[in-house]
Simulated scan of single mutants.
Amino acid sequence: MEEIKKKQAISISEVKEILEKGDPESMDQIQRWTYDYVSKFVKIDPKDAKKMKQQLVKECDLTEEEAVEIVNIRPTTLAELRSFTFGWKKLILAETLEKMLKIIKENS
């Protein structure tokens, strides 16, 4: 069993990128299921996903986990975005929400 070297929140695009580096024949059942899932649902390039995540953390003061949630979902309207951020139990100003939408649109 491999030891955990680092724990980090990553988008499903990044998961797909990591799994693609491995040999599909050597994947265990969970890795194969995960790879099948991300292959169906990833709609954004891993580089764009990483850039979007970094921008959301830096420019919108989000945690890495919050940024990953936004990258994975990529809401397109203020109402959609509010429905996700509401669950975070912290106040996010309308100006910040607009900035988040702009970042999503620029990187999608």
Rank of each mutant, 00 (worst) to 15 (best):
V71N: 12
I12A: 04
D45N: 03
L93N: 15
N107K: 00
A94R: 06
K6V: 06
I10V: 14
Q31G: 11
K50Q: 10
W88R: 10
T77W: 03
D36E: 15
M52S: 07
Q8R: 02
I30P: 00
F41V: 15
F41L: 09
E59F: 12
D45R: 07
E66A: 14
T63Y: 01
C60R: 08
E64L: 05
R74F: 10
I30M: 01
E95C: 06
R74S: 11
A94M: 08
I104C: 06
V57T: 03
T34K: 04
V68K: 09
I4L: 09
M52K: 08
I10G: 12
I18W: 08
A94W: 10
I18C: 04
M27K: 06
W33I: 12
T77A: 00
K47C: 14
V57R: 09
R74V: 01
E14Q: 05
Q55M: 09
S26R: 09
E66F: 03
E17A: 14
K16F: 01
E3T: 15
M1Q: 02
K43C: 05
L97K: 10
K40H: 06
S39R: 02
D61E: 13
E25M: 03
K16W: 04
M27W: 04
S83L: 14
L19H: 05
K47T: 14
Q29S: 11
Y37R: 14
F84Q: 03
I4A: 10
K16S: 02
L19M: 12
T34S: 06
K43I: 01
